[in-house]
Design a protein around this nucleic acid. Structure first.
Lengths: 167, 167
DNA sequence: TCATCTAGTTAACAACTATAACTATATTCG
DNA sequence: CGAATATAGTTATAGTTGTTAACTAGATGA
């Protein structure tokens, strides 16, 4: 431990009486990064609860949706789209494949790469999950009107698309 | 491995020619949770770059700001405010204390609890960091107008305050 | 004074992310 | 052709983070 106390002007003090138990009204409320983080955690909590019975994690859901939209996409491109590292894709797809939701198909033109496809089961599940996710988003943002929700989405997309484009 | 291929209707296929390399225009763009996550990561990347030379992590910054606003706050209350688990607070405060930025003061009324205070050095640094964070938020959201930035902040705060209140 | 509760701590562990290095194929170009 | 270089996917590894369980010291209350 070895705490140097010379920088302290106080030694035995009562904790402040007016201690906060919530972050409302705090200086942190003006920090965009902090607000983003807290909102993201709140929304993800709802999402995870909704997905729990299907044992689907956020990254798995995103993968399923992208594969559905781009059947035959390669792992490399999936990694680029989702902005995650190739090694993570491997275990992700392994998991989906083991559960019979997706499958790798070796590309005959470039035998290094695999096209990824959803199985019938994967397609069916993805359809279901998208509805669950939709509802989860709404549940997590009860305090927002439909218009506000759309505004928010537009603002967020603006941020991360312009940012990833830059570098 | 042991992949069951019976659910696949295709065996040797070319990956789709029109493969995406960005997420723009994708189905995922309508997922609020996904957009939140991506935006949060983008903003945090800027934040971490800005804080790098001071070796301050997001949770450390938040702690400093809260302690500044509530000098003498107990660790338990700090944990509640930041919505993180008590064990994380310990190492967090340990670190700040070792670096001479904050200090624990045993409360004489309840000798189990500690009030946490910033040192002079901690106060000075926190002031500096707040400016850096402010600028970092702006840099990370170049594509937003000042009005949009404020809108966004308000919407985010709405989400996470109503959510944490519920439970 | 005994049982129960709380603040803080420690330690073990699970999850996620990033990095490095390896393999097999492809491509380039002398 | 064939040597050098590059790419897709994989494996292993390790850093970082968040979670849980259990412990200690002190407080509270019958």
């Amino acid at each position: 431990m070895a705490i140097t106390k010379k920088s302290a002007s106080i030694q035995q003090v009562e904790p402040d009486e007016k201690e906060p138990t919530s972050v409302v009204g705090l200086v942190l409320e003006n920090r965009l990064g902090y607000a983003l983080r807290r909102a993201q955690l709140a929304v993800f909590k709802h999402f995870n609860e909704a997905m729990q019975e299907h044992e689907i994690r956020p990254a798995q859901f995103s993968s399923l949706v992208v594969i559905e939209g781009y059947p035959g996409i390669t792992q490399t491109n999936l990694a680029k789209v989702l902005d995650i590292d190739p090694p993570r894709i491997v275990s992700l797809i392994n998991n989906l494949e083991e559960r019979g939701l997706a499958l790798r198909v070796r590309c005959k033109r470039d035998k290094r790469s695999h096209g990824i496809f959803l199985s019938k089961k994967g397609e069916a599940l993805t359809g279901q999950l998208k509805e669950l996710a939709e509802q989860s988003d709404i549940n997590a943002t009860q305090s927002l009107s439909e218009i506000e929700r759309r505004q928010l989405l537009a603002l967020l997309v603006k941020i991360y698309t312009s940012d990833t484009d830059e570098e």
